[in-house]
């Protein structure tokens, strides 16, 4: 029973990791850009959701949708106005400038929040806090379950969008071969902006779904971003099913590692696995090439 409980917990937390990582993966896959401020974007989303929850009577999951929309706009604007300028200067090599720029941006976001709001760790008060479903001996936390369901739905929706819709195909084409896609008439800049925006939107949704059970403080982003980086590499950059699988795997290692050893050891195992993947299958678990 203990194992089943651990398994369920692992899946639920893995699902949330996935939805955060998949945005990063998409951006990395399409634009070859690592958004180093991904974690801080999550923190800001959580902050907005927290305040909206405190001052408006809206249901936290409605707030989540609003924050998602806000973050979509933010990502779109950030990319089209700022990042595209930097990107256009890069050669075909991995764009380190974007990494550095977003690292600076992340620093500004995190420390500004600390100055303005202080470092207090605040937990949102919602009607879902502490509630759980009891199925015999099993306990399933309600806010985590809802987060898991939304996360999986979001990832599935994204995948469908990429596979079936016109825009989605344009995005996939660009990620496979930038120059050819442009020749085919696809606006590279537009694709980038939409991809980036989708990435930040997913982070916005994640922020909204986390607040019923996760505290908000200026450096909360780094907890998730470190894991996101690992998941992106694990699943293969640009791969949506890869990010989902990667998130679940990280969740499982964390929980079962903690069960058999301890939380700290579990963290180390996750990092070691990351190194192993980089060594043996750097293009990700689900990719077909040998990297």
């Amino acid at each position: 029973m203990l194992y089943l409980q651990t398994f369920i917990d692992a899946l639920m937390i893995g699902g949330v990791y996935s939805v955060i990582a998949v945005g990063l993966s998409l951006i990395f896959g399409v634009m070859r850009v690592i958004n180093w401020s991904h974690g801080e974007s999550l923190m800001v989303s959580m902050l907005i959701a927290l305040y909206m929850n405190q001052y408006t009577p809206l249901d936290p999951y409605v707030i989540m949708l609003i924050v998602g929309a806000v973050m979509f706009v933010y990502g779109y604007v950030l990319q089209s106005v700022v990042i595209s300028r930097i990107l256009s200067r890069e050669t075909d090599r991995e764009p380190i400038s974007c990494l550095l720029f977003t690292a600076g941006l992340g620093m500004v976001m995190s420390y500004s929040v600390q100055i303005i709001f202080g470092s207090k760790q605040v937990m949102a008060q919602t009607k879902y806090n502490g509630r759980a479903l009891h199925m015999g001996d099993l306990v399933v936390s309600l806010p985590k379950l809802i987060a898991f369901i939304i996360a999986v739905v979001a990832v599935a929706a994204l995948w469908t969008f990429l596979q079936k819709s016109e825009y989605g195909r344009a995005i996939r084409a660009t990620s496979q071969n930038r120059s050819v896609a442009t020749l085919m008439g696809i606006s590279e800049k537009r694709v980038y902006s939409v991809s980036f925006a989708i990435g930040t939107m997913l982070v916005g949704l994640a922020g909204g779904m986390l607040i019923p059970y996760f505290s908000v403080y200026p450096t909360v982003g780094s907890v998730f971003s470190n894991k996101s980086f690992i998941i992106v590499v694990l699943g293969g950059k640009g791969s949506v099913p890869g990010a989902l699988l990667g998130g679940l795997i990280v969740g499982l290692i964390e929980k079962f590692g903690a069960l058999f050893f301890s939380e700290s050891v579990a963290q180390i195992i996750v990092f070691l696995m990351f190194i192993a993947i980089l060594l043996f299958k750097p293009t990700g678990l689900l990719s077909k090439d040998k990297g």
């Binding site: 409980q5 651990t6 917990d9 936390s141 907890v223 939380e263």
Partner: peptide, 15 residues
């Protein structure tokens, strides 16, 4: 059991 402050999800420990 120890845990990393701030990153915690106590479900395993609680279990």
């Amino acid at each position: 059991e120890s845990f990393e402050s701030g990153s915690a999800d106590f479900s395993t420990i609680v279990n």
